[in-house]
Design a protein around this nucleic acid. Structure first.
Lengths: 257, 257
DNA sequence: CGCCGTTTGTGCACAATTGCACAGACAGCC
DNA sequence: GGCTGTCTGTGCAATTGTGCACAAACGGCG
């Protein structure tokens, strides 16, 4: 059992935004787990029995695999949200696989418990509905982004998104993995990263990417990152933003998600 | 006021799948409207005060516009679903624009009415949650599809989707419009359509596309169309499928959506 | 019938991206 | 300190898609 105000619990913005009373309803049922990179939270077609709340710098992703084996990330979730049955909320089969991309601590909750608690608390219901709306917005934007924007811009966008969630300049990811997530060819992605490096936006290291000029990277990225972030701020900002309980990160570096 | 069993009302699969009792809760608040092609149901950023149920062969789309003016369709909704606040369900700002693509009758309902009715009926809540899950699945698949599949396959997929909703071989759409929806160049789309025509899958006419070999078109299309359709059948099939009230279409030609 | 605006067809240069092959570099481990 | 497996860099041909210009075809309307 986790204390209501445990840092772990507050390390997820959704959970952190709850009133102490609502948080107390969930806390007894939350299970802390450490997830490794690559760990599959649920597989496409499976019933989703747990909802996971990444905390700290843990990041998970919804991934769709095609018959030919190629995969793409279709949604990313960090400590700003939750993964699994966010929309369906029942015992429906998952449409996509969920994979841990950046290892770290996660809080798990049985889907059914969440359902019960939602029934009991309008504020909690409201919060999750708002998050679902944001998740959908993120995915809608990704559809458009993949249709219209060249890889370099999408790559820059993706780096920004990961940095927001990690809150660090150093992103532990290989070209290979990033290429898979973007759904592009590894060798071309290497060239793209090198191009970004030549523009002094990032530095490419073995197994990691270092952001050295965030502002310029934002300028290089497509507008999609900003559009989604703005929606999060509009819809969840008052709840998870500045007025939310402080997170264990240096204040000047806190971001919306 | 619309009678509970009016053909118009049953012409939307979601409304048609409701128990007569639940349908009676909504019916008094439904407003029938005729929509023209191009009509904007709501604009991005606006609060969504109405939810619209396309009936018959009316088709609407969620569209995202980029700063440079280019647009893409990010979700399509026909008589299998509903558009507007399906997920957010509250008075949150819409993330994307909603546009009528194929003119026809639509039933409108104030978002707030739907909220009230949901509060009163678990079955209705369940149905809408299921639909929201399917909508999300459709969008997730579109993210992957746009990332991985060449235009010809996506084009074939799109044609199948429209045909499902229209239930006709003849699709009233111009190259120009279709290119906008897919987010590709008109001149290239013309070539793509011609290629599909040369394979005897479709016939290209001025202002319309005629499907002449559905099966072969399905083979040419990417797997995405099938994957989404399967999810609809799994999640909504028992409700909106064969066991649902008959729709005014010839039985052999009925499709899942 | 003939005109006119819209829609479609096509040519061409070139940019973006794939696909594949292979060399080199790094980091951890024994 | 050297081996080994993973990760990164790069060369090159082929394909896919863009961007633009302009001609041709169609169909409704007066």
């Amino acid at each position: 059992m986790i204390p209501d105000d445990a840092p772990l619990l507050i390390g997820n913005l959704l959970l952190g935004a709850l009133q102490p009373r609502d948080r107390a309803l969930l806390a007894p049922h939350l299970e802390a787990r450490e997830c490794r990179r690559g760990e599959v939270l649920f597989e496409a077609g499976e019933d989703v029995s747990f909802i996971s709340f990444p905390t700290g710098s843990t990041v998970a992703a919804l991934v769709i695999a095609m018959r030919d084996g190629r995969t793409v990330e279709v949604a990313t979730v960090g400590h700003e949200g939750a993964i699994g049955g966010v929309v369906s909320q029942g015992s429906l089969p998952a449409f996509s696989r969920a994979v841990v991309q950046i290892a770290g601590p996660v809080l798990r909750l049985e889907t059914q418990r969440l359902q019960e608690t939602k029934a009991a608390s309008p504020a909690l219901r409201n919060l999750f509905t708002r998050y679902a709306d944001c998740l959908l917005a993120q995915v809608l934007q990704a559809v458009a982004c993949n249709a219209l924007h060249p890889i370099e811009e999408r790559c820059a966008r993706w780096i920004l998104g990961l940095q927001d969630r990690l809150d660090s300049e150093v992103l532990p990811i290989t070209h290979e993995l990033l290429a898979d997530l973007l759904g592009v060819q590894r060798s071309y992605l290497t060239r793209t990263l090198k191009s970004l490096q030549q523009q002094d936006l990032i530095q490419v290291r073995r197994g990691r990417i270092v952001v050295c000029n965030r502002a310029a990277l934002e300028a290089k990225a497509c507008e999609c990152h900003g559009a989604v972030k703005r929606h999060f701020e509009t819809v969840l900002g008052a709840l998870c933003g500045p007025s939310a309980p402080p997170v264990a990160l240096s204040p000047t570096r806190r971001r919306a998600f």
